[in-house]
Simulated scan of single mutants.
Amino acid sequence: MNEHFFSEQDFRNLDAASQHFAQHDGFMSVLPGSRGFFHYSKRICMLGESFVSTSTSRTGWGYETKNEIDGFLISIPLSGEFHWTNSLGSFEAKPGSIVLLEQRMTKNASYSEGMIWAMAFISYNDLFRALILLLGRTPKTRLLFKLENSNQRASNAIRLIIQTILQVASNTQPPITHVTAHLKDALINLILYNFNNNYSSILLDNSTITTPTPYVINNAAAFMESSNSPALTVNDVAIHAGLSVRSLQLGFKKYKNMTPIAFLRMTRLKAARQLLKTSTHEITPQSIATQCGFSNYYLFKKYYLETYSETPNETKLKYQQATKNVGADFLRDLI
């Protein structure tokens, strides 16, 4: 299942919550809070087999599971605390910590009353595919993470990506995959690089990266310039160029002095700016953004303002006025 979609859910009784989780995890038994009540709400964006969410436990709740879902769960408590038990023992997490768990090893978990937390679940299949693209080969052993509950730098970055995905997904008309695919890739790479795992030494060792030739990078750049597909990702470019993602990133840094995603964004912003300067009054900045590969106008406007210190509308109006002035001067000269 590769569908990406956003939803908001509010469960005020145990039966509704149990029915919901039965659809997504038939091995989970939902438990009420300590006072016997149940109220749990969340904003969630499904990303194919993975998802991100922010949740609030107003009454406290918990679950027991015989989980067979293969993937890793990252939880970032913002208030309150939660406890969990897995095959290694019992643990707890409070605000200021970040927890990465292998979901299929979890036996039970409980969330305190008033707890708010951000969460990302990344399926093993998604992590495995990303690892293949980073390494440029199929991994020989299963990906394993070391248990961690404190990584503040990673916590802030992951929380920001989760918030961005939820904000973008909630403000974009479906389908949203062409918007969220880039952010999902960024989240997975952030996890692989910032949490110790059995491939960390390879991923962090630049000597293991094959340096591409300028020709290959120019070919990749031309491919990016020729595509206005909003769904185009760095992974797609790496596959087209016949490179690992790390080799692609190294080559762009060496020959273009920027990351592949920054190059793609710059190329599309330049094309959009040119169209804003020359398009007729009837063509809107929103349609120009779409034409140049930006499916989310909010993000396009944000990047455009950061790059050119003016909004797309301001650029369009400024050059329309300049064109009018040139026309008026021309008519005066004729008279």
Rank of each mutant, 00 (worst) to 15 (best):
K253F: 12
G71P: 00
V99C: 14
D185C: 02
H24F: 03
K254R: 12
S279K: 09
L192T: 05
F145D: 02
F128T: 05
I191N: 03
V179L: 09
N228A: 13
N206I: 06
D25I: 01
G80C: 03
N108Y: 08
R129I: 02
V99K: 13
T180Y: 01
S247T: 12
E81Q: 14
A272W: 07
H4A: 01
G96M: 04
R142T: 13
E81P: 00
A221K: 13
D70I: 07
I165S: 05
Q291M: 05
C45R: 00
K318R: 13
R129A: 11
F294T: 04
S123Y: 00
S7Y: 04
D329Y: 14
A231M: 04
H4F: 04
A238E: 02
R273L: 10
P32D: 15
P77W: 06
K256A: 09
R142K: 10
S200R: 13
I98S: 15
S90M: 11
R43A: 08
Y255I: 07
A221Q: 04
Q173R: 11
H39L: 01
G62Y: 11
Y319G: 05
H182V: 11
W61T: 01
R12C: 14
T172N: 13
I261P: 00
L100Y: 13
M258G: 04
R268I: 14
L127A: 12
P77R: 15
W84F: 12
A16P: 00
A109V: 01
T141H: 13
N2S: 14
Q286R: 15
F128M: 10
Q249M: 12
Y303N: 11
C45Q: 08
A262F: 09
L47Q: 02
K140T: 14
A154I: 02
I158R: 02
T172V: 01
L88K: 12
T180A: 02
R273F: 08
L147A: 15
A109P: 02
E282Q: 13
E282K: 11
E3L: 01
Q19V: 07
F91I: 05
L248C: 09
R246L: 05
L243N: 09
S53G: 08
N228F: 09
E225S: 14
Y255E: 04
E3Q: 07
